[in-house]
């Protein structure tokens, strides 16, 4: 089978999954439960994606744990996204130098 066909199918499905609800869900949602659900869903998705995956993100659980601690501390104190993200990476890198 040609690679172009695979890629076309992959891109088509990925686009439809995004575009159909985004385009045709025009109305404001009335249900209080569903509005609340949508309010909480971003936090739930990001939390489920991050934990426990973050501990495997560097290929070494110790460097990843060091990066996680730094990210938690820095985000607790409300530092900007990019500072938190790069500090976590730097912490993982520096910890790796000592292993």
């Amino acid at each position: 089978m040609s690679i172009a066909l695979y890629i076309g199918v992959m891109a088509g499905v990925t686009y439809l999954v995004r575009s159909v609800p985004f385009t045709f869900f025009g109305k404001k949602i009335k249900s209080r439960f569903f509005r609340s659900f949508l309010y909480y869903i971003p936090y739930a998705v990001l939390s489920a994606m991050t934990i426990p995956a973050i501990f495997y993100s560097t290929g070494n659980i110790i460097t990843a744990a060091a990066g996680t601690v730094v990210a938690l501390l820095f985000s607790y104190f409300g530092l900007p996204l990019i500072v938190v993200a790069l500090s976590a990476s730097a912490a993982a890198f520096i910890t790796g130098l000592f292993l």
Binding site: I54, G78, L81, A88, A92
Partner: peptide, 17 residues
């Protein structure tokens, strides 16, 4: 390998505050 944590760090920065 250390760059692998960048996006997760960003996720934490979004949900923790």
């Amino acid at each position: 390998s250390a760059m692998g944590i960048v996006l997760y760090g960003m996720f934490l920065a979004i949900i923790i505050p």
